[in-house]
Simulated assay, not measured.
Amino acid sequence: MQLALLLFLLVGTCRADYFFGDLKDWFDKITAPNEYCNREWITLDGKGYGKGLEADLGRYLFGQHIASDVILNAMTGFMNNDNPKKSLVLSFHGRAGTGKSLASQLIVKNIFKKGMDSRFVHFFDSIINFPHASLVETYKSQLQNWIRGNVTNCAHSMFIFDEMDKMHPGIIDGIKPFMDYHYKLDGVSYQKAIFLFLSNGGGEIIRESTLVSWKAGKKREELKLEDLETALSSLGFVYYGESIVVDFFIPFLPLERQHIVQCIMVEMVAMGLQPDHNKACEISDKIVNYIPDDERRISVPGCKRIAGRLWHFMQ
């Protein structure tokens, strides 16, 4: 009876399916009996976790030396800290196809034993989960209750927000208190929670900075976080206001031809094919567009279109 009432209230509260996505998947997560908030299921000591994340970032996150270094240091430091002062908040910025979603998945994989299927990992897409501007206050209230309930259930909960640049400011205001320097809010501590924000915002700034650096004769690998973070931090005020809740604004650089070749090689393996470097080089010039036109230096779509287009160009 109580279960039926819970479902009724959720569905009746302004279309819970809009907010939580597929209700069945959500319900399966919160009722999963075979996962617990302890060291067996969540890596807290940072040892094997750090090594695993470093290896995965090096193996799969192509062309993102800045993001890889910052993510590894931030995550390892946070996971090794038994008493963090605040939740960890990372904001990923860059154009589509540069690896923001992949990076978040690698983080999850190396912390939670069940990866993205963990009931302690919560993913939101701003466009899908918060589609109506007229319902901002409802979304805000529901999201606050959702975060509070899940962190109460597991202090090491992770919340991932995609399309952050499209999220209504009112909803952002609603979640900022959970990410700030508070010992407890209404008796609940959020200091061990992790928030990941994925945004296309700043993509043009990052791309132009990369092109300017390249034209000046500077190697891609010489670009550092501080070369881009100031501009991204300024952009962050548009999203997060004056409250400095974000620990790192992390730039994802535009990908070059060599990185597209690497993405194609990985996708070949995923398709059960023998990876062929020469074939990957050939396809890389057909499968994506590059800029500037006379140099063909930077991939416009990154690696985003490869999985859907590779079969066609393999024929």
Score class of each variant (00 low, 15 high):
residue 262 Q to R: 13
residue 154 C to R: 06
residue 7 L to N: 04
residue 273 L to M: 14
residue 111 I to Y: 00
residue 2 Q to N: 06
residue 224 K to P: 03
residue 274 Q to M: 05
residue 261 V to R: 02
residue 93 H to Y: 00
residue 149 G to E: 13
residue 180 D to S: 11
residue 285 D to E: 13
residue 221 E to T: 10
residue 134 S to L: 06
residue 194 I to F: 03
residue 225 L to E: 04
residue 146 W to R: 04
residue 182 H to E: 00
residue 267 E to A: 13
residue 144 Q to F: 02
residue 195 F to K: 11
residue 287 I to D: 05
residue 42 I to W: 05
residue 196 L to D: 08
residue 108 V to W: 02
residue 198 L to E: 10
residue 207 R to E: 14
residue 301 P to G: 05
residue 315 Q to I: 12
residue 218 K to S: 11
residue 54 E to C: 02
residue 196 L to P: 04
residue 268 M to Y: 10
residue 315 Q to T: 13
residue 42 I to Q: 09
residue 117 D to L: 07
residue 125 D to P: 00
residue 258 Q to N: 15
residue 40 E to K: 03
residue 122 H to R: 15
residue 217 G to E: 00
residue 215 K to L: 15
residue 194 I to W: 01
residue 256 E to D: 15
residue 54 E to M: 02
residue 192 K to M: 12
residue 8 F to Y: 01
residue 205 I to R: 08
residue 90 L to Y: 02
residue 138 T to G: 07
residue 284 S to G: 14
residue 306 I to F: 06
residue 63 G to Y: 00
residue 110 N to H: 08
residue 251 P to F: 09
residue 163 E to F: 11
residue 59 R to H: 09
residue 80 N to L: 14
residue 192 K to S: 14
residue 109 K to M: 02
residue 235 L to P: 03
residue 186 D to L: 14
residue 160 I to D: 00
residue 144 Q to D: 03
residue 144 Q to I: 10
residue 271 M to L: 15
residue 26 W to P: 05
residue 262 Q to W: 07
residue 240 Y to T: 12
residue 206 I to F: 11
residue 165 D to F: 13
residue 167 M to K: 08
residue 236 G to Q: 11
residue 52 G to V: 07
residue 307 A to Q: 14
residue 308 G to A: 02
residue 59 R to D: 11
residue 55 A to T: 08
residue 314 M to P: 01
residue 147 I to W: 05
residue 129 N to R: 11
residue 115 G to D: 02
residue 223 L to C: 03
residue 119 R to Q: 15
residue 90 L to D: 03
residue 81 N to L: 09
residue 69 D to T: 13
residue 13 T to S: 14
residue 238 V to G: 13
residue 278 N to L: 12
residue 201 G to I: 01
residue 17 D to W: 12
residue 160 I to L: 08
residue 160 I to W: 01
residue 276 D to A: 04
residue 278 N to P: 04
residue 195 F to W: 09
residue 240 Y to C: 13
residue 80 N to T: 13
residue 233 S to Q: 07
residue 67 A to D: 03
residue 130 F to M: 06
residue 292 P to F: 03
residue 175 I to V: 15
residue 196 L to Y: 10
residue 152 T to H: 07
residue 170 G to N: 11
residue 281 C to Y: 01
residue 159 F to W: 02
residue 77 G to R: 13
residue 228 L to W: 05
residue 63 G to W: 00
residue 302 G to D: 01
residue 116 M to C: 11
residue 276 D to E: 03
residue 290 Y to R: 06
residue 30 I to R: 02
residue 139 Y to M: 00
residue 261 V to L: 06
residue 30 I to G: 02
residue 297 R to L: 08
residue 188 V to P: 08
residue 246 V to R: 09
residue 178 F to I: 10
residue 109 K to Q: 09
residue 196 L to I: 12
residue 146 W to K: 06
residue 224 K to Y: 04
residue 142 Q to A: 15
residue 161 F to I: 15
residue 47 K to S: 10
residue 232 L to S: 01
residue 175 I to A: 03
residue 1 M to Q: 08
residue 67 A to H: 04
residue 268 M to W: 10
residue 154 C to L: 08
residue 287 I to G: 05
residue 258 Q to E: 15
residue 96 A to H: 10
